[in-house]
């Protein structure tokens, strides 16, 4: 099987400070990878570098997506190629309705792929169906994007957008933070419904509990900018029970 994403010895940072200190990771289609780690370990930096946030500089290493150099592409080109990031802190855009935003976004991605815009009725159908997936009330469609949404509603809106855009690679950056148990279940169900043999997900999280709902194929531990340990889903439970410090005490991290 051809890997979807190959991160090779990636070093990156911000404002001259190195945060990712040589990360290598291969993600195949159909896989869910969880990246866990304590605060400040570089989890969000990894997400930002993958989606192309300009403040972050890549020092060395490479990221290959679908056989192409991902780091060369502008953020919108990455999105058009099927990379989606569910943000930890989604922004609010006053005056732009959620429906209008999603339609503009979807049609921009389709246009980049040489596809016709989705006709209005097909679009409405799809929207209705995908909103149900994350139990988002249709009234949100008319409201300005994320404006006045609760934390949980914003996260559900991110997964709704993911459902609409059908990405090949989804990066979920701390999607579980700030969610109560019901919202967590809704978000996880939405994500699970979107799993196919052709797409892959990278789930970034601090806590294990999300992984009870979204079961990962591989769990990686990120500490001080390096992946120090990989394992199956049981590793997440072990981390939950023992915390992160034992990895340091064991001398896994220098």
């Amino acid at each position: 099987m051809k890997p979807l994403l190959i991160i090779d010895q990636l070093r990156a940072g911000i404002e001259g400070r190195e945060i990712l200190k040589g990360i290598s990771l291969t993600v195949n289609p159909g896989e869910v990878h969880a990246i866990m780690g304590p605060n400040g370990s570089g989890k969000s930096t990894l997400a930002s570098v993958l989606s192309g946030r300009s403040e972050y500089e890549v020092i060395s290493g490479s990221v290959t997506y679908n056989g192409e150099d991902l780091l060369e592409k502008a953020p919108e080109e990455r999105a058009q190629a099927g990379v989606f990031q569910a943000f930890q802190y989604p922004v609010e855009i006053p005056g732009v309705s959620t429906a209008n935003f999603v339609r503009t976004s979807l049609n921009a991605i389709r246009a980049a792929r040489g596809e016709e815009p989705l006709d209005p009725s097909a679009f409405l159908m799809r929207m209705k169906e995908r909103m149900a997936l994350v139990e988002l009330d249709p009234s949100f469609l008319q409201r300005s994007l994320n404006e006045g949404f609760s934390g949980g509603e914003k996260k559900r809106n991110e997964i709704f957008q993911m459902a609409m855009l059908e990405p090949t690679l989804a990066i979920l950056d701390e999607t579980d933070s700030g969610l109560d148990i019901d919202a967590l279940r809704i978000v996880a169900n939405g994500v699970n419904a979107l799993r196919t043999p052709n797409n892959a997900m990278v789930v970034i999280t601090h806590y294990q509990r999300l992984l009870n709902y979204i079961v990962p194929d591989v769990v990686h531990v990120l500490m001080d900018g390096q992946l120090v340990l990989s394992g199956n889903k049981d590793l997440a439970l072990e981390l939950e029970a023992k915390g992160y410090d034992w990895l340091r005490n064991d001398g896994v991290v220098a």
Partner: peptide, 17 residues
């Protein structure tokens, strides 16, 4: 950046905003 990440180029994003 959020708009870019959703596939809109900067010009489209500005028009939308």
């Amino acid at each position: 950046f959020y708009c870019n990440q959703r596939g809109l180029d900067t010009e489209k994003a500005v028009a939308l905003i």
